[in-house]
Design a binder for these strands. Structure first.
Length: 756
DNA sequence: GTTCCACGCGTTTTT
DNA sequence: CGCGTGGAAC
């Protein structure tokens, strides 16, 4: 016990050993949040307060869940398999699998990822002859997910106008379509299990009695439905231990509601509020910059990080003339850091949006510096993998129309648009899935489609005794995918990926503890080691929990949807890390470069318009700063190519919110002119190419102005000339004043000062 | 059924 | 500018 709790600071110790009551832990960046969470579980188990069955631990990412599980089993001897540690979606999936009948789902229900959901909606719109200019698929997806995250079914939503009404109808149609196909989207996993528990008293009471402790990681990222789910699950008096940081809430745009932290305190009458403010990551100057920046936000729960590490180095600031120049600076600096002995993998270049990586990558590539870009396609999202998975999905559940349409004619087998159209008509007429509608078709279409049916059923027959990896191998061959890609010029990589899919299956089985030789299509009883409370006589649903029947194949399909795999193959060599600020959350590096600190880019022009958008951008900047351990660089560029146009931006307002004392300017600092923080502005794209010097004689003074120049106006503050027009005495300049917006000023009237 | 071109669009992202 | 989608032509 002593050993478990040693080296915890007083606040961490207090948090770990709190009584079984609702608690909110405000855990600042780098304050040992995961450690507290994990040690708390270990402590609860070790003191015998609760058994493994009584614990429910929720995270947002699979990575976080894995880490928690790994650290827990390193701390105490405990069998973590079968423990309810996972993502919201993973745990809801488990719930729905165990009680699929009560949830009104087919046993082999499948999970739609984002791509799948979008194509499902596209298909729906087409089938109903909806004008997708007026009702864009993405908008409908957003509408549906939004409603579900509010806990609303189509029948519960009220429409305010015709447009709304139509969206609502489409939402209802989508629900019907999913139900017919036996598929659920991500939000549905949450909503369906929420409804399951709220409607089924026995089930609810069972789980409420079972889970004595509910621990939630990254609580600031919960959405409304997840919060309600937690309330329901803990309704039997479970001690909810919520850990989060309101200053690191950067996912409001996808439904996360920081307000849940305040609501939690009220709804659960939280008496135990602990702040973890001791930071073990960053040096003092870096922390001071972060603290000063975030202090500009209102409505914070309040927290100030401190460190014992000393001030360390100043925060370096670089003003680049262009994005290319900025990239050159990054290259040079990275080179010299490496020369000093820094690890490339301990250096990260962060940017606000993915588009910024191109120029940086180009420079790094040219300089021969190894780098790795995070983001982009992940293994299970690759087209060829999706195709192979679709065959497997059809073998498990032929009524999945999305999977059907994806591969019915891929590789091509003479089933064209006409045949599909006929089939869709037939399916609609009989209200069945496409697969089920095939027997109704006659003629040429019927013949070729029947051949497809034989392919699927034949593959299923042939592989039914096989273990999963052999089944995968057989399917990628029999489907014709391998042959198809062999004929393609660029197909080699795809074939390699397909071969890797069989390896992924091997890996999956061993991770899940499923015997490698277990037939893929046989229900593998109890491999999840679901443990149940003593069964309540006469309650069938509780029995289901004891043995969750799921074939290895179904489990693998679930895995593929819920965990799309790594972003890219790591090459293992020491490489510089490139990523967006969002994907850097939770990570830390010795040296961090935050790039593109320009008005319009960071804060992003679209964000400053949104409600609380600016505050979220500031939190994003806060997250970026707090990633750095020892050295932090901030850079911005006077001009930047974006969307094929040159933009002239002024430096980010966030730069001005940092304390002078911690900064060290690599380039000369310009004069500081600053005027309040009220109005919001935006970046601006000029149609010009490079900033061409334009000599202009302006009346009164012999001054020439040129595009790209930074100027100062006593009312609007600092701005950048992005355009010049007119001639003689009537020259006007279009000036981007950042947060003050764009102004067209007559140069014979306006008094401008040159800033640099 | 395949290929090619034109058009349009362009924060952030995990499940 | 560079990508992805979708429609039209071969």
């Amino acid at each position: 016990m002593q050993k478990l709790l040693e080296n915890l600071n007083p606040e961490q110790l207090a948090a770990v050993t709190l009584p079984a009551q609702p608690a909110l832990i405000l855990a600042g960046a780098g304050s040992g949040k995961t450690r507290v969470l994990t040690t708390r579980i270990a402590w609860l188990l070790k003191t015998g307060q609760v058994s493994t069955q009584g614990i429910l631990a929720v995270t947002f990412t699979n990575k976080a869940a894995r880490e928690m599980t790994a650290r827990l089993s390193a701390m105490i001897p405990v069998n973590t398999r079968g423990m309810w540690i996972g993502t919201f979606h993973g745990l809801c999936n488990r719930l729905l699998r165990a009680h699929y009948r009560d949830a009104a789902l087919p046993q082999s229900f499948q999970i739609l990822d984002m791509q799948d959901q979008l194509s499902s909606v596209r298909r729906l719109l087409k089938a109903n002859q909806v004008d997708d200019d007026k009702y864009p698929p993405r908008a409908l997806v957003h509408y549906i997910n939004n409603a579900k995250e509010q806990g609303l079914r189509a029948v519960n939503v009220e429409a305010y106008d015709d447009y709304d009404q139509r969206m609502l109808e489409l939402y209802a149609l989508y629900e019907t379509q999913c139900q017919r196909e036996g598929v659920v989207d991500f939000a549905e996993l949450l909503l369906r299990s929420y409804e399951l528990l709220s409607r089924n008293q026995l089930l609810r009471e069972h789980y409420q009695a079972r889970f004595k402790h509910i621990l939630v990681d990254e609580f600031q990222d919960t959405n409304d439905l997840q919060y309600q789910w937690l309330k329901l699950m803990s309704g039997g008096g479970a001690a909810v231990f919520a850990v989060g940081d309101d200053d690191q809430s950067i996912y409001a745009f996808r439904g996360a509601n920081v307000g849940n932290m305040a609501a939690f305190q009220v709804d659960f009458q939280v008496q135990n509020l602990i702040r973890l403010e001791q930071n073990y990551r960053s040096h003092g100057n870096i922390l001071e910059a972060a603290n000063a920046l975030i202090a500009n936000n209102s409505r914070r729960l309040g927290k100030n990080l401190h460190t014992d590490a000393g001030y360390g180095e100043p925060v370096r600031v670089f003003e680049a003339t262009s994005d290319i120049n900025e990239a050159q600076y990054l290259v040079e600096e990275a080179k010299s850091l490496v020369a000093e002995g820094w690890m490339r993998s301990e250096m990260a270049i962060l940017y606000r949006s993915n588009a910024q990586s191109r120029v940086i990558e180009h420079a790094l590539f040219g300089a021969g510096i190894p780098y790795r870009v995070y983001g982009g396609l992940r293994f299970f999202e690759r087209a060829e993998i999706k195709h192979a998975m679709a065959y497997l999905q059809l073998m498990d559940n032929p009524h999945n129309d999305s999977a059907f349409l994806r591969v019915v004619n891929f590789p091509t087998r003479g089933i064209g648009a006409r045949s599909i159209e006929q089939l869709q008509d037939m399916a609609k007429q009989h209200d069945v899935s496409l697969y089920a509608a095939i027997p109704y078709l006659s003629g040429k279409a019927g013949t070729s489609l029947s051949a497809f049916v034989r392919l699927i059923e034949g593959a299923r027959f042939e592989t039914q005794q096989m273990p999963l990896p052999s089944m995968v191998q057989t399917v990628i061959e029999r489907s014709g995918l391998i042959t198809h890609y062999q004929k393609e010029k660029e197909g080699a990589d795809r074939i390699e990926n397909l071969e890797q899919l069989a390896n992924a299956a091997v890996l999956f089985l061993s991770e899940e503890g499923i015997p490698q030789d277990m037939p893929a299509l046989f229900a593998s009883q109890g491999f999840q080691e679901m443990v149940s409370l003593p069964a309540v006589p006469g309650v069938e649903v509780l029995e289901a929990e004891q043995v969750m029947e799921m074939t290895p194949l179904a489990a693998f399909l679930t895995h593929a949807s819920l965990e799309a795999g790594d972003n890219q193959a790591q090459d293992g060599q020491d490489a510089l890390q490139l990523m967006t600020v969002h994907s850097a959350k939770g990570l830390e590096f010795d040296a961090v470069f935050i790039t593109g600190l320009e008005e319009g880019l960071f804060p992003h022009e679209n964000s400053v318009q949104a409600t609380d958008g600016l505050e979220e951008e500031r939190r994003l900047m806060y997250v970026a700063i707090t990633r750095a351990r020892k050295r932090l660089y901030l850079s911005y560029a006077q001009t930047r190519m974006l969307h094929g146009q040159t933009r002239y931006n002024i430096q980010s307002r966030f730069m001005d919110e940092l304390p002078e004392g911690v900064l060290k300017w690599i380039t000369p600092k310009k004069q500081a002119y600053w005027f309040g923080h009220t109005a919001s502005g935006s970046g601006y794209a000029s149609t010009g190419s490079a900033p061409e010097p334009l000599a202009m004689a302006v009346s009164g003074r012999d001054t020439s102005w040129r595009i790209g120049e930074t100027v100062f106006h006593k009312k609007f503050g600092e701005g950048v000339i992005v355009g010049l027009e007119g001639s003689g005495a009537h020259v006007r300049a279009n000036i981007n004043f950042g947060r003050e917006g764009m102004k067209l000023l007559d140069l014979s009237v306006a008094k401008l000062e040159r800033l640099r």
